[in-house]
């Protein structure tokens, strides 16, 4: 989850440095959620007013959702606008903070559908492909709640340095479940295969194109326009030769609801028609992501030009 505008999402430096994040963790623990929520509106207002490109990105996205819904004779739910979208982002960030700081008040977060994840507590590991829609951080909280559920999240080393440095001091145990990956190489594949063999799971986000490998993306229809999606997660899926699930986690009426959709078991990209198979997988992913965006439009946390991120357009 990242807030900021700019050209490519990864060019946007995380707003607020390491000390800012540390300060936030410390105050969250000290003051609790109530004070933070009270502070949320002024902070959101500030970001709303200063984050011009993020505002534009949200506007473009919500317009695309509206157009898409109109095709089915539906309209956006009342109260859906750019400002509320930013508020939703702020709230998501607070939840994320709470989870990372281990200050997860049972009252503010409830997990519906926890049994869904129970089925993954024994047997072989699977690959979850998630997105920046909803809040996947709650998986970590699940991991702590559900015995035997271990999920390793793949994160890009380059783009979360600040978070990683803060986590080192704030929550080293969280860091253990993160696998930093910059490029997909044989070592990484072998490490992950070992984890799967041990019954641990791997989670990766499927909706952000790598900065380093912009050319490794495929455009798929998304809310009416083709958007670039990374090939990496799907290539990884095929190399891991494990069951693949799409993972969504939406906040509905204050409760986090996890949904897991079987995607492939395993994902096969036959070399003779690899490109076409890869494209089919990405198109399917984009379709499911779109469906969730229509379901909960404001839980989309990609505040950058999603349709233009790969090229110079």
């Amino acid at each position: 989850m990242k807030f900021g505008g700019g050209l490519h999402w990864a060019h946007v430096s995380e707003r607020g440095g390491v000390w800012g994040l540390r300060f936030m963790f410390a105050s969250y623990r000290l003051l609790g959620r109530g004070v933070f929520t009270a502070l949320l509106y002024p902070v959101v207002a500030y970001f709303y007013l200063t984050g011009r490109s993020a505002r534009h990105a949200s506007h473009d996205y919500l317009t695309a959702v509206r157009t898409r819904l109109a095709r089915e004779g539906r309209s956006l739910p009342p109260g859906v606008n750019v400002f509320q979208h930013v508020v939703a982002f702020g709230n998501g960030l607070l939840d994320k903070l709470a989870m990372w700081a281990g200050a997860l008040p049972a009252s503010s977060l409830e997990f519906a559908d926890a049994p869904v994840l129970q089925q993954f507590t024994n047997g072989r590991g699977v690959l979850f492909i998630g997105s920046h829609h909803g809040n996947l951080e709650v998986l970590r909280a699940f991991g702590e709640q559900i015995q035997g559920l271990k999920v390793n999240t793949l994160v890009s080393t380059r783009n979360s340095q600040n978070w990683i440095r803060v986590l080192k001091t704030v929550s080293p145990q969280m860091l253990q479940s993160m696998i930093q990956i910059d490029s997909l190489g044989p070592e990484a594949v072998i490490t992950l295969r070992d984890k799967l063999a041990a019954g641990e799971h791997v989670a990766i986000l499927g909706d952000r194109v790598s900065v380093k490998h912009k050319e490794r993306s495929i455009r798929a229809p998304f809310l009416g326009k083709p958007a670039p999606f990374p090939e990496g997660p799907f290539v990884l899926a095929s190399l891991l030769e494990c069951p693949v699930y799409l993972l969504f986690c939406l906040k509905i009426n204050g409760k986090y609801r996890v949904s897991v959709e079987p995607f492939a078991d395993p994902l096969v990209l036959p070399r003779r028609e690899r490109r076409a198979a890869l494209e089919r997988a990405i198109v399917r992913y984009a379709e499911r992501l779109e469906a969730h965006c229509l379901l909960a439009p404001m839980q989309w946390f990609n505040f950058f030009d999603f349709w233009g991120q790969a090229g110079g357009d």
Binding site: L184, G185, P186, E187, V189, I190, R193, V235, S238, L239, L269, R271, R274
Partner: peptide, 15 residues
């Protein structure tokens, strides 16, 4: 061969 082949070969060689 393509980059996916390269990775598969890399994994096999590494092992």
């Amino acid at each position: 061969l393509d980059s996916i082949d390269a990775l598969e070969l890399g994994v096999a060689v590494r092992k």
